[in-house]
Every structure is written in C-alpha cells, then in structure tokens.
C-alpha cells in the first residue's frame, strides 16, 4: 500500500516535499527497507517536463516515510508515479496531482512586512503613554 503526502498544501510551483508511506498489504506494517523512486511528468502544448528522483528516509522528518524535495517548474496537472522495489518485489502506483502557480512573494512574506507597522503602532502607543504620564505627573504637582 502506498500513500503520498505533499507539502505545501496545495502544491505550488517551486520546491515541494513529497513523502511516501509504504505499507505491507497484508499486515499494514511500514516497510522501511524498500527503494522508492518518484517519477513526475507533465506535458503542455510546448514543453514536456519530466522529473525522476529517489525518495529516502534521510530526507524525511518522519523516518517511517520516504521523502524527496522536488522542484516543480510549472503549474498544472502532473502525473506522479511512485515506484517501489524491495528485493525481487516491485510495485508502482500512479495518480495525478494538481500544482498551482507560485504564491506571490508578498503573500508568503506579508507577516514580515506587517511587523513594521505593528511595531510602529506599539511605539506610538509607548510615546503616547509616556506623554500622558508626564502630563499626569505635571498636573498632580502642587
């Protein structure tokens, strides 16, 4: 049994983390000693993109999975085929994945830009409080 996880969700043009979980069909235990290969293919009117990349435990955070970092060059529907070999046994599974256009940099980094006005507002509040405090002190002085 083969399950594929993709990050980010949804997948976008750029570097994607594709992780594969391989389980025995009978006992559903994780298979850790297989060789896993990802084959991604996309045909458009003008270009054919093809990526073949091995997936490994080393690239995965969860060491039960096999992962590969794949640079997806274009948006659209990609065909993903996962090839698994273990000794003499071989299996494969395939399916389509949808890759969206890259997120505009502003959309992915807006937080860092928003940090500036946020801190400016906090500074303005700080100055306002200081002025108020000075004013209060001045008023209570006999």
């Amino acid at each position: 049994m083969v399950t594929v996880f993709g990050a980010p969700a949804p997948l976008r043009v750029g570097v994607a983390d594709l992780s594969v979980m391989v389980q025995g069909a009978a006992d559903q235990n994780s298979v850790l000693d297989a060789k896993v290969r990802l084959h991604l293919k996309r045909s458009s009117a003008t270009n054919v993109f093809e990526i073949v990349v091995p997936a490994s435990h080393a690239a995965a955070t969860n060491k039960l999975l096999y992962a590969a970092h794949v640079n997806l060059p274009s948006a659209g529907k990609w065909n993903l085929e996962v090839g698994v070999t273990r000794g003499d046994l071989a299996a494969s599974a395939s399916g389509d994945i949808n890759v969206l256009p890259p997120e505009p940099p502003l959309a992915s980094h807006w937080l860092y830009i928003a940090l500036v006005p946020l801190l400016i507002v906090l500074f303005a509040a700080n100055q306002w409080l200081k002025r108020n405090r000075r004013f209060r002190r001045f008023r209570v002085r006999p």
């Binding site: 994780s30 850790l32 955070t61 969860n62 039960l64």
Partner: peptide
C-alpha cells in the same frame, strides 16, 4: 525493532 527506531529518530528540529 526497525519501526520503533525509525519512529524515535523522527525529530522535526
């Protein structure tokens, strides 16, 4: 076993 050892080495860091 290998599954347990793989699980225990899965640190996000």
């Amino acid at each position: 076993n290998s599954v347990a050892s793989a699980a225990l080495t899965s640190w996000t860091l």
